[in-house]
């Protein structure tokens, strides 16, 4: 699934995921696993962006829809859909549902422009910066903002 792997000694590796027409980067050090779409058990009475829970090798892991969290239209499940399992703390996994996983890129710190804190659009708060790569820009996701659910 990774079309192109850039290997540079310095910089951070990001997995590039597609969400609608946009590309987002997720810092690879937080990623535990990427799994194909599987049946998700709905959990009643939780925030809308939680799709439910899945069975990940015997553990129950909640799955969040990145699209709903970022105020986009609801997910359309295709065979490109993936669940990215994030591990921000030990013993606490969470999955995020994305349209597709594109590639792995390495972006050096110099090529990242940190976002200023003006919050014009709703989704901007989930972006920690924009990275320049060959052929375009990638929004880098601020995972702690996405997962922190004090809403």
């Amino acid at each position: 699934m990774a079309n192109e792997v850039a290997v540079v000694n310095e910089g951070t590796q990001y997995i590039v995921v597609g969400l609608g027409n946009e590309q987002y980067g997720i810092d690879i050090k937080y990623i535990d696993n990427i799994v194909r779409m599987q049946s998700i058990t709905r959990v009643p009475k939780v925030q809308e962006y939680f799709k439910g829970v899945i069975n990940l090798r015997g553990e129950v892991v909640p799955v969040m829809s990145l699209r709903i969290k970022m105020n986009l239209t609801d997910d359309e499940i295709t065979n490109k859909s993936r669940i990215i399992i994030l591990k921000l703390e030990s013993n606490a996994n969470i999955g995020i549902l994305v349209d597709e996983v594109k590639k792995v890129v390495t972006i050096s710190d110099g090529d990242i422009e940190r976002t200023s804190h003006d919050r014009k659009s709703g989704s901007q708060t989930f972006i920690s910066g924009v990275g320049k790569v060959e052929g375009g820009l990638i929004s880098l996701l601020d995972l702690s903002m996405i997962i922190d659910d004090e809403e």
Binding site: V43, P44, K45, V46, F50, V53, V60, V61, P62, M64, E89, N91, A92, N93, I94, I147, D149
Partner: peptide
């Protein structure tokens, strides 16, 4: 159900 999801008490 994990740390992040907080369902109602009935679950």
């Amino acid at each position: 159900l994990g740390k992040y999801i907080k369902p109602s008490r009935m679950i």
